[in-house]
Each structure stands twice: as C-alpha cells, then as structure tokens.
Design a binder for these strands. Structure first.
Length: 552
RNA sequence: UGACCUAUGGUGUAAUGGUAACACAGCAGAUUUUGAUUCUGCUUUUCUAGGUUCGAAUCCUAGUAGGUCAACCA
C-alpha cells in the first residue's frame, strides 16, 4: 500500500468534477504572452497545468496569448517552446490567440447585436475618468446609447482601418456603477496599426486580454482554466462573456503565484536587467529565467521536484530559495560525476616521492552511483592543494593539513606536513610533505587513521579552466516589499570569475554536462567554452558545515 | 474608507468536525577516503474575540492583518 498524498485544492475540484460526471476528461492550457522569457514562476504554472493533465489523463495546450502586437516577438515564442520542452512537458496542440481573431471578431459583433457592446469615441483619459474609483461609481460615456446599427457600422469601419490608433474602442455595455471595476464597460477592442508577429498586417484592431482569453479557452474546450490570483476579479467578466456569448463554459480557478526570497519575477523588470546590461542576457546564470537556471546547471528534474514541494494554494507566499537549492543539490548529487579542481592553489612537494615518477590512480566517479565507474587521475611529486586546507596554527577540530599533521589525499595517499616554506613577505609559499607508500587508496595497509580528506591535482598535468561563481542577484530578501528602485538592491558581487586548476579528465567535458567539483560545489560546462578554454558555471555550493562552524 | 481573496512553526504545505503532521531552514549527535551524501534526535505552530457543537485549525459572526482591483498590458 502506498501512502496517499493529499490533494491540492485544484485537484480536489477536478476529482469532484470527474466523480460527478461533469467532465469525463480534463483539458488545461498554459497561456504565456510571448513578450519575455519564462521564469521559475512560470515553471510552477507549467508543472501545475501539465501535471494535472498527466495525472488525470487529459491534455494541455500551449497557447500563446498574442493579442498585443507591440510587445510580442517570435524570438520569445521560440524560447518559450524550448523552455517548456526542456522542463519535460509535451503539449497537445500549439495554438495562438491570434488563430481566433476571426472568431473573436464575430463574438464582438454578436455582443453588439445583443445590445451588449458599443463603440466609444472617448479618449483613453476620458474612459479612465469615467471608470470612477473602487469606492466611487463610474459615469456613462456619452456614446453609450448609440444604436446597434451604428455600432455595427462603426466597428466594421474600425476593422477596415478607417480610424487612427486610439480614435475609437469597442466597449462592453455592462454597468458603470458595478462594484467590480472590470465590469464597468470594459474595453474589448482597440485600434493598433501595428505589425503582428503572426497575422502580419491583416488586422488593425486587436482584442483585449479579457475578450480573448476566456473565449480562447471556450474554443479549445478547456475544462479548467488555471491562472494566478491577480485574475480573481476577472472571473466575473470571464463568466459574463461565456453567458452572453453562449459558448463552452470553461471555468477559471486561481492559485497563488510563486515568490522566492532574493528573487524578482517581474518580466518587465527582468527585461530591464537585460536591456541595461546588469546581466549578460536573458540566459545569464544569475537570472531566474528557465534559460538562466538551465545555463547555470539546474536540472528540469530539480525544478519539477521543487514545484512539487512548494505546493499549490491560494495564499501569498515567499518561498525560501534554499528549498530550490536543496532540490538542485539533491538531484545533482545523484547524477553528477565527481572531479577534483583546486581553486586557490598551494604547492605541495612530496619529498620522498621519486622525482619524475607518475602514477595513474583510479577515483570513483560518483559514490551515489557505483555503475558510473572510475576515472584515472595522474599523481606525482608536485601537487596543488587548496590554500584553505592548510593552517599554520590550526584551531581545535581542524582535520586538514598543519605542521606535523596528516591528511588523506582523496583517492591517493596519506601525507604528512614536514616543513612550511615561506616567501620574502612571510606568506606560505610551499609545503614540503612526506607520503605514506602503504596508505594507497584501495590497498591501504598503513593502519593509519586520518580524519581529514582533501582534494588535489597533479601540478604538471593540471588544466587551467575558468569558473564563474554566482551569488544571489539581489541583497534584499523580499523584493516584493521594496518601495524604491529595484536596481538599488542589486548585489554588486553576484559574479566572481577565477582561473583554477582542474584534473585533466575534464578536457572531454561536454557543454551542459554536470559535475561535482569535490568539496567545491556543482558545476556545469558553459556554452561560452572553447576547446582551449573551458568555462564552468557554479550551479550551487555544497553544504559546508565546517564553514558554518568557523563563522561562529 | 468600497468590493473581492487570504490567514496553521522562521519558510512552505497537510490535517476535509475527532491525538496538529510533513518538507526546507536552524540546532545537536552518529557514520563517512568529499567537514558532501546518509542516518538519528531536538527546538518552534492553528491572527483575535464571541458563537454553534459532546468535540472546532476546520462551521458561523465580528474584528484585525496582508494581498488584489481605478492599463486602449497580460
């Protein structure tokens, strides 16, 4: 018997609908506007919509909400499709709201014929003034009582291009005193003489979101139209169109969108980061975009796991980014091969190791996945170790190298620090050590037990590579709560670039391949790499209890 | 001074009128040829006040707090 996982509120609704026979199968949709790149917040929506269809045997459409030609571009369409696929989901149909422009136009005509829509010559300022405020009712437009025939003619003229941008709009005729401001004669169509990425110059009037979204859902017979909380007040309008147009009754349900600590999800602001060159592009590894986290080395499995763990509910949330990092580590720990890379090198000479001699020592690729086998590491008389792994005056419980102390070189030998060589300034320049020949990994008969194990690379064969170490992009935990310009909160130290020394097996690394650099973190080969210069992005550090201990 | 949505440990999410639980974070310990992983234990929770009920995190009322709504954006 497997433990039954509790349902989120949308799953409860669906199971009820299925049980009561309201639906025999479900249809959902993921409806991005192609005006920016997808981010981790969209991943929550994608995982929800596609996950539901998968769980209940339904289907999910990918539908681009492309009703505003001014901001939308094909580049975004392509990136969105790539990101959804990368996350591991397959859509039933690739659709566009612009596919429905003809039907939408006829829906509008139907509304006019029913006396439920009118053409308004008011300016946008006048319309805004007519809206009233949340606490004060609006006022009727003086064009509100035009005849059906006149409205039909005017709307047709709008479509025919007889008017300039902004000269006229089509408005729903509902109730200017309605408590829900969206019901105060909403704009349905506006004039935009703009080139559309799909329909070209065929149209000069474009439907507003409210007049396109629900109707698109109805056309596709979407059973459960899932969106975020800010659309709650739109539901009333959504249902009004369904009722008046007598179309398929899709139902809208709203959940709380994802907010994450030290992260900003606004597409507009992310675009600004790109345009103002605060980051290298939409796929900068510091960006919360899916292309960014992919390049950084996060995996789709980790992101799906994250989406599963954060749950789905209706209350505002601020997820600790450490949960995402936990998911990334958890997956990478299982799949990433281990490699040794020294970041801040300190020379070690093994005085009793024969000069000119080298050995090839096997080292396991992944202790979590023995089937990954081993790779070979060259070992010689001169090595690099991490500066951090030596202290001349060690504190209590320091397991690493210190004068007279021993450590294990991972997959190699136990060494003992015999002498500390300093440069003219008194800085430690080199360690002279001896090794214990009988302590070789796999055939250790030395009987010596050491607590510390450190990574190393053979100096002669060390491969210089670049690593890019990322920190959070913002220094403020709750970026949703700030009042000033968000760029004031940018972390000026979010990127550190270093040249480091890697074991030679990394030469064959492939772009996008994940590694754990022992004790240093998880890394991923960046597409900027060339055969002569490998670049690794740090996806996330390893948990480091010792560093935490030292901070106390 | 309107309407709507929401309120459970530090952060999330469960408990569907019947013993408040799980994960992350934090703390302590065990194991470890990564101070990683793994394992064990611990700290911390129902916004307030009334009401209904044998029994309320759950239902009702009021209050309080947070969020949303006044784009020819989505």
């Amino acid at each position: 018997m497997s433990e039954e996982k509790s349902l989120n509120f949308i799953e409860e609704i669906i199971e009820k609908d299925l049980k009561e026979g309201k639906h025999t199968t479900i249809a959902t949709r993921f409806p991005p506007e192609p005006n920016g790149y997808l981010h981790i917040g969209h991943a929550k929506s994608i995982a929800l919509n596609f996950g539901l269809a998968l769980k209940y045997g339904g289907k999910t459409n990918l539908r681009f909400d492309d009703t505003n030609p001014v901001t939308e571009e094909t580049e975004y369409v392509e990136s969105i499709k790539g990101d959804v696929k990368w996350l591991g989901f397959n859509w039933a149909e690739e659709l566009y709201a612009s596919d429905y422009f003809d039907q939408l136009y006829h829906f509008a005509v139907k509304l006019i014929q029913k006396g439920l829509a009118y053409v308004d010559d008011s300016t946008s300022e006048e319309i805004a003034a007519q809206k009233g405020t949340p606490t004060q009712p609006g006022t009727n437009s003086k064009f509100r009582n035009r005849s059906i025939d006149e409205n039909l003619q005017l709307f047709s003229d709008m479509k025919a291009g007889k008017y300039k941008d902004g000269e006229k709009v089509l408005r729903g005729k509902i109730d200017m005193a309605h408590l829900n401001m969206l019901m105060r004669d909403p704009v349905l169509y506006r004039i935009k003489h703009a080139h559309h990425h799909r329909t070209g110059d065929a149209w000069c009037i474009y439907p507003m979101y409210d007049f396109a979204h629900g109707q698109s859902d109805a056309i596709e017979q979407i059973t459960h139209s899932i969106c975020t909380l800010e659309f709650v007040p739109h539901r009333e309008l959504y249902n009004w169109f369904i009722e008046k147009l007598e179309i398929y009754p899709s139902r809208q349900y709203e959940f709380a969108r994802l907010n994450m600590t030290y992260t900003m999800m606004s597409k507009r602001k992310l675009l600004q980061l790109v345009n103002d060159k605060h980051v290298s592009g939409w796929d900068d590894p510091r960006m919360p975009t899916l292309s960014g986290v992919r390049r950084r080395g996060y995996t789709p499995e980790a992101i799906r796991d994250f989406c599963e763990r954060i749950g789905v509910a209706k209350r505002d949330n601020l997820i600790d980014i450490s949960l995402l990092e936990f998911c990334v580590r958890d997956h990478l720990n299982k799949i990433a091969d281990r490699r040794m890379v020294v970041f801040d090198p300190l020379k070690v000479i093994i005085t009793n190791y024969e000069e000119g001699k080298t050995e090839e020592l096997p080292s396991e690729n992944n202790p979590e996945a023995p089937e990954r086998g081993v790779r070979s590491m060259p070992f010689g008389r001169e090595l690099w170790i991490e500066q951090e792994d030596f202290m001349e005056v060690p504190p209590k419980k320091y397991f690493r190298l210190a004068p007279g102390q021993m450590v294990r070189l991972k997959s190699a030998y136990i060494i003992k620090c015999e002498e500390v060589v300093k440069d003219a300034t008194g800085k430690v320049a080199e360690l002279r050590c001896t090794y214990v020949p009988e302590s070789k990994s796999g055939s250790d008969v030395s009987g010596i037990h050491v607590k510390g194990v450190i990574h190393w690379v053979n100096a002669k064969t060390a491969l210089p590579v670049e690593v890019r170490l990322y920190d959070r992009l913002f220094t403020t935990e709750d970026m949703g709560a700030i009042e000033d310009d968000f760029t004031n909160h940018l972390n000026t130290n979010s990127l550190e670039v270093k040249t480091v020394f890697a074991e030679p097996s990394l030469t064959t690394a492939q772009v996008g391949e994940h590694f754990q650099f022992l004790r240093m973190g998880y890394f991923c080969l960046d597409p900027d790499s060339a055969a002569t210069k490998l670049i690794f992005n740090r996806a996330v550090t390893l948990k480091d209890m010792w560093a935490k201990e030292m901070k106390k």
